[in-house]
Design a protein around this nucleic acid. Structure first.
Lengths: 115, 115
DNA sequence: TTCCTATGTGCGAATATAGGCACACAAGGT
DNA sequence: ACCTTGTGTGCCTATATTCGCACATAGGAA
């Protein structure tokens, strides 16, 4: 593998990893169409401030979010909407999985069986 | 946060995490438009068979790839093309980052300076 | 058939990395 | 002076990653 390609894969993986955590997925979903400060995110996610702050710093380092300071508060917002495509694609993968499982069950229950 | 939503975020994060590694990004890029067996992937990625096999098992468990056995070989292929959207979006994030940095440098070099 | 090779995968151990928690501190508002 | 907000630090635990080795399987050759 090319050395330049290797570097690119590392950077891409770093960005993807910035979203590879349940709390960070929840944060991205919260920021779908509004900007929020750390305390609000912590309240809605159900985590503690330092924890949320750390996750936000990971997402900020990855370039997924941007900040806007307003007095005492720091508002976070998504930097590009295509990040939501991650979540939607993940949902599609999940849907494909359940559809496949459903088809397997169809085969096991040939006709008319209700239970 | 709702308990059901929490579960969904965990599942989404698990799928995203299945791609959050340089080697796995490289594998997804290799499988962009062709199916490959483990040995070929190992050769092109520059890793060892057991290592690639483990990464593929992670991607398989996450539902990102599917397998097709043909005699001695096991061919892996992407299960849904929207996964490539992950990579493309990651590239866009990177591009936005360099564009932003370039703009900052523009401000620092007002006019006509070449070096 | 028997032997041999190639492929893929599971297992165990060592290392590296991430997550979570508690605390303290800086900045800004009242 | 006091409170709120956000962030940094240190510590511990859990998980991920890699490697070497061994094993099962499938195909070909003698």
């Amino acid at each position: 593998m090319d050395h330049r390609a290797k570097r690119r894969y590392e950077k891409q993986a770093r960005i993807i990893a910035a979203l590879a955590h349940p709390t960070r997925v929840a944060i991205a979903d919260l920021l779908r169409d509004e900007e929020l400060c750390v305390q609000d995110i912590a309240d809605r996610v159900g985590a503690q401030r330092p924890n949320v702050s750390q996750h936000l710093s990971v997402m900020l380092r990855g370039g997924l979010v941007q900040t806007r300071k307003d007095g005492l508060l720091v508002f976070y917002s998504l930097r590009t909407p295509c990040i939501l495509g991650f979540l939607d694609c993940a949902c599609r993968v999940l849907e494909d999985g359940v559809r496949e499982d459903a088809e397997l069950l169809e085969d096991a229950r040939p006709r008319g069986a209700t239970r």
